[in-house]
Computed example of a mutant assay.
Amino acid sequence: MRITDHTDGLTITANDVTIAEYRLGGEIDAVNTPKPHFHPLRTLSGAQVTDFAPEDHPWHQGLQFAFPRVGDHNLWGGGTYFGPDEGYKIVADQGRIAHQRWEQRANEGADVGWTEQLDWIGHNGEPLVAETRTIAVRASGASNAGWILDLTAELSNSTSEALTLATPAQRGRADGGYGGLFLRLAEGFVPGTLTGESGEITASGARSRTMILSGTTGAGDSVTLGLAFADTEPVGDQAWLYRFEDFPAIGWAGAYENAFTIPVAGSLELRHRLAIYDGVVDVDAVSADLAL
């Protein structure tokens, strides 16, 4: 694998196939919250898995890490949810997540990746969170058809008060706990069976450390995805939030019902894994790759 620079971030190739581009988000308008993100993500054969800024949700940007409420600020993009009666409204509360610098890079080899520093900034320029983000990419250890992406985010409170990371769920939206790592799938994605640690997953909000699904992209490519929370994630509120009927997306919903709180001078570490494969891959093989 190899990492190379481009004008707005980094490109990751495997055997000369571009499997991922990491973009710093400079082209995103203020309402949709500029933020670093991965797009496109592809299988080893080049089948595209992600979508970017679709018309129905232009603040969905490939694979992204953000929260709808960071204190009094919207770091997700689009409208802010004000409750079941008022719904979503676009108000001037959007901030941004800004890349500051690369700390470490492993540009070539069986394992590649980087560590970077980012600042989460409020709608009036207030510093909210200092993030250390670590990305690691490697080939699957269980199937020659896939590769694995790990994203670890250490979030440190930059304010002088306890800071809440919240979702629309805390304002009364049913199945509204999206926030954190979020995957917008390519248009036309059709899922097959969703499997968790205890068997089939049948509804959004399922509790499981892992989720595995095979499906077909809008271009007709068969793919398998494996998703996992790290065991060190705060226990008790992890859920898989997903949509397929109106648009295809999956969220690692770490604050599905209850908000995170980062104390003054404190920090919170969240770890996630995504495995991407060509074709239909055996559940046991994917599970082996998802062991964190």
Rank of each mutant, 00 (worst) to 15 (best):
G218A: 06
V281L: 09
R184I: 03
N15Q: 15
Y81Q: 06
R184K: 13
E269W: 01
T210R: 10
T232G: 08
R207S: 10
G109N: 09
R171Q: 09
P54V: 12
L128G: 10
G254V: 06
D278H: 09
H37T: 08
D237R: 06
M1E: 11
R2K: 15
R105G: 03
G26D: 08
I276M: 05
A106T: 15
L227H: 03
A249I: 02
S156T: 15
T7L: 06
D8G: 01
E103G: 12
L183N: 03
L165M: 05
F52P: 00
A291S: 15
L41E: 02
A174L: 12
A145Y: 02
I262S: 03
G177S: 07
Y88Q: 08
D221K: 08
D231L: 02
Q94E: 10
T159W: 07
F82P: 01
T217R: 07
G196D: 04
S143I: 04
F67L: 07
D175L: 11
P263F: 09
H272M: 03
R42N: 13
D282V: 02
A219T: 12
R209W: 05
G62Q: 10
S140R: 00
P34G: 14
D85K: 13
N124P: 00
D29P: 01
P168Y: 08
S204H: 03
P54S: 12
A145K: 15
E233P: 00
D72M: 04
G83H: 07
G78F: 06
P68W: 03
A174T: 12
A219R: 12
T13E: 14
W76T: 01
G220K: 07
D8E: 11
L181P: 07
G254N: 07
R184E: 01
S198D: 15
L149I: 14
F189G: 07
T134M: 05
I97Q: 03
H57R: 11
D72V: 00
G87Q: 10
V17D: 02
G251P: 00
H272S: 12
R69V: 01
G71E: 08
L155N: 06
D289C: 00
G87D: 11
R171D: 09
K35I: 05
T159D: 04
W102E: 11
I148A: 05
G215R: 04
E131F: 09
A219E: 14
E233W: 05
P54E: 07
A110Q: 13
H57F: 08
S198T: 14
V129C: 07
Q238K: 10
N15G: 13
F182T: 09
T193A: 15
G205Y: 05
Y81E: 06
I201P: 04
G9N: 02
A255D: 03
I90S: 07
T115I: 15
H123E: 12
